[in-house]
Write a protein that binds this DNA or RNA. Structure first.
Lengths: 235, 235
DNA sequence: GGTCGCATAATTGGATCCAATCTACAATTG
DNA sequence: CAATTGTAGATTGGATCCAATTATGCGACC
């Protein structure tokens, strides 16, 4: 039951321009939740958000609904929308989904990947090497994975995978905290890229599965050590 | 550019009572789309829907947004929301997702299934044997699969699987039309249940994969024969 | 006859207002 | 002193109203 932190700061931050107010609110809140600035359990009252964003309650309502559909919020009647709690069980859940979806993406994508994708992936690896901000790290990691999957040619599968990956950003913070943020399984990333370039599908899948399993184990032990209680404790 | 068919009939049909008007509108429209009564490409104008449901445009708006998040609608600015088209490619896409998610569910669930679930699954098979209405068939099929997965103990994975299965109802009509609705892979269902009961995970997975592949192939050939054009042509 | 431009109509996003419902606290009574 | 009930506050769902943007149809001009 903690207060909403620095709401004004949140509002100001959104860089990209959005066509509608609803999109602006939704994007800002999603970033705040995924990046951990809005901790699990935080109640969001429509009235406060509306004032903070300088809009009416209506776009706020629609944005909250969208976020609820993305499982980032729970609507509690007459108590406000609360940010979904994260837990070790939840992390395992998300990983099970990734483990199911991503090999399917990679398998279908590898045969059709072209030079453009390989170049983009290599560049993303380099960016990750020299990115200090853990917030952007999640985005880079997501883009790297999605580039490798992008040639699968199945839009729904890719969309689902991308949204799952986006949700994973909430756990990535723990991963980084445990590993030291500097190198985040970059060896795995390089190995995946190399396997994809040589069209070695079984190897690529093997590396990917190992990559995911390692991350899952890291986060699990991290949660076990901390206890899930203060899940959102550090911003 | 066809007219919305029998909007009044749609509105009246919703049996269950819903707490809010938004939920009512959303449930009714989702049923209509999934069952094929609202064909792909049909434009839905907020004003018309609001009048038909006897509510303001606002709950309609929120319901449409929810359905958009479920990929059942596309928002076209100043043209209204149009029902997503279905196609052979889309069917393949949905099947790829099922093929990725459902074995993962089944694998995790089988060891923990109890008598209650086996009994429920067996009963659902019998119900499907004697169900004449293809509309309810989709629901029964969905419930059968979900019962077998229900002991997986991973709520997000299950939720994702269930929503994918729900979306699959749109294609199920074609499957039924091609096979003759009377028996819809009931042999597969019985075999899956038997394998689950004997805790034979590899066998259960094998049957499930075959089940999904068969259905995918059936729908693909059916689409190929018809051409995807009149996708929503028969209600 | 064809094409460009303007005016009108339609549609949506957003704001404000209203009603209904639930929570929480406090006063009162057994 | 505890339990219960009543009242006030807070919060949300819904309706109506307004503004902005765009599609469309008609007419004028080349």
């Amino acid at each position: 039951m903690q207060k909403i932190p620095d709401l004004a700061a949140l509002v100001a931050e959104t860089g990209g321009r959005h066509r509608t107010a609803t999109q602006h609110v939704e994007a800002t809140l999603r970033n705040a939740i995924l990046s951990g600035r809005l901790a699990g359990g935080t109640p969001l009252r429509q009235e406060d958000l509306a004032r903070a964003f300088g809009v009416s309650r209506m776009p706020v309502r629609e944005a909250l609904r969208q976020l609820e559909a993305q499982a980032l919020l729970d609507f509690v009647p007459h108590k406000g929308a609360v940010v979904t709690e994260i837990s070790a069980a939840d992390a395992a859940d998300t990983y099970a989904i990734r483990m199911a979806l991503e090999p399917a993406c990679l398998e279908r994508s590898v045969p059709h990947l072209a030079e453009a994708e390989f170049a983009a992936a290599a560049e993303l690896i380099e960016e990750m090497d020299s990115e200090p901000d853990p917030g952007r790290m999640g985005e880079l990691n997501r883009r790297f994975h999605m580039v490798l999957y992008s040639a699968a040619g199945q839009p729904k599968l890719l969309a689902l995978t991308e949204s799952t990956l986006a949700g994973f950003d909430r756990y990535l913070r723990f991963h980084l905290a445990a590993h030291g943020r500097a190198h985040m399984s970059q060896e795995d990333h390089r190995a995946m890229l190399a396997a994809a370039q040589s069209r070695d599908i079984p190897l690529a899948l093997h590396v990917l599965r190992g990559h995911l399993e390692t991350a899952a184990a890291t986060i699990a032990t991290f949660f076990a050590g901390r206890g899930g209680a203060d899940s959102g404790g550090f911003s």
